[in-house]
Amino acid sequence: MRVSAPASGSGPDLGAADYPLSVNRQDLLRTPTGKPITALTMNAVVAGEITAEDLRIAPETLQLQATLAESVHRRQLAANFRRAAELTAVPDAEVLAMYNALRPRASSKEQLLGIAENLENKYQATVCGALVREAAEVYERRDLLARDEED
């Protein structure tokens, strides 16, 4: 709580004192469908106003958590949240397919670059795209691309 918060790149200037957002900054929290978090009540559930889609995290919220993580010097954790913010737009099945494609010897270099392009162009997921491009390069160097003859 005593850690000072450096100014962040974008969004509200959040620091450790704002955490937990669910207690201290409910004003910043919305569902992906645009409802304020305070709308997620039992009455609303019973009235059928809440769907499973409302219980997901919004990309903006992940960016807020990334800012918080940076304020306490957790650079990699923040980067993970920023990649995650991008992936909120990608459907579940596609996320799983991308993960499987990144397994060793599962994809050719072209296939990996195709995934990167898809992430970048279709989902504006540039940080994720860069991670996949980096994988393609390393896999090529370490002989971890798909081989022609698999038994």
């Binding site: 955490y19 937990p20 957002l21 669910s22 929290l29 569902t31 978090i37 997620l40 409302d54 219980l55 997901r56 995290i57 919004a58 919220t61 992940l62 807020l64 958590q65 918080l68 993580a69 957790r74 954790l77 949240f81």
Partner: peptide, 11 residues
């Protein structure tokens, strides 16, 4: 509801 806030994602 916690997953909407992302608070549990922190260390």
């Amino acid at each position: 509801r916690q997953r909407v806030s992302g608070d549990l994602l922190q260390t």
